[in-house]
């Protein structure tokens, strides 16, 4: 188990950073989607949902092309950070943010749509600015959405495999996450270690999902 510890720590770190970044990116995106009247909304929604249906190999392949130091983005990153995006934790974070985006945006969008216009109008009539209204009225009313979005994004990132396999390079302590370590154990017929990690992943995923559903029951929907 002790030899699996670096992989477990790395996985938790990756999932935490990814979830935090997704909160920052996903909240405004979901807010915009919940309120926009543009006819391009279905297109933006479709693009956001794309990682749900695309095979990880598509994302992994394009990222490999994008991360290459000869490309614009890959080259810029090498100049700024002095390291390649592929085979680094930063690269895995970018991959995970893309891969888990729908798990953040969709629950938030649903929650924001449920809050509706009325509470915001009430806040505005009491002199609250739009930002103030969002933070002190909309966010508490959407708590359920935030819990679901955060929990799902976190555990979905923990369970990520294909993209990491393609851009990670399987470096112990840097890019060898639990799912990759498990794959290695299976391939080298080390079934005892594979069992330990697989059972651990099932237990962790189940715990997070149960927690999300439990907490959601305590904070029932505040329909507008």
């Amino acid at each position: 188990m002790s030899e699996s510890l670096p992989a477990i720590l790395l996985t938790v770190q990756l999932a935490l950073v990814t979830t935090l970044i997704l909160f920052v990116i996903g909240t405004p995106l979901a807010w915009w989607l919940a309120n926009t009247r543009t006819r391009f909304k279905p297109i933006v929604e479709a693009v956001t949902a794309l990682p749900l249906v695309l095979p990880p190999t598509v994302i992994g392949f394009y990222l490999l092309i994008l991360f290459n130091p000869g490309s614009a983005i890959g080259g810029l990153w090498v100049r700024l950070a002095g390291d390649t995006l592929a085979f680094s934790l930063s690269g895995l974070v970018i991959a995970s943010v893309i891969y888990s985006l729908p798990f953040m945006v969709q629950p938030l969008q649903t929650a924001f749509e449920r809050v509706g216009q009325a509470p915001r109008d009430a806040a505005a009539s009491l002199g609250a600015s739009p930002l103030d209204a969002f933070v002190s009225v909309v966010m508490p009313l959407s708590l359920r959405g935030f819990i679901t979005a955060g929990g799902l994004s976190f555990i979905h990132t923990v369970g990520e495999f294909g993209v990491v396999l393609m851009v990670g390079g399987n470096i112990p302590g840097r890019t060898r996450v639990v799912s990759i370590a498990l794959y290695d154990h299976v391939e080298t017929l080390d079934y005892a270690s594979a069992h330990a990690l697989a059972l651990g992943l099932v237990a962790a995923s189940l715990s997070v999902l149960v927690a999300v559903f439990l907490i959601n029951r305590r904070y029932p929907v505040h329909a507008g």
Partner: peptide
């Protein structure tokens, strides 16, 4: 500085795409 392909085909892809020099 070592990075590992799961097989020699993936290793080749790492180099051919320029991600490993």
């Amino acid at each position: 500085r070592q990075v590992f392909g799961e097989n020699i085909g993936q290793t080749y892809a790492f180099v051919a795409t320029g991600n490993a020099d």
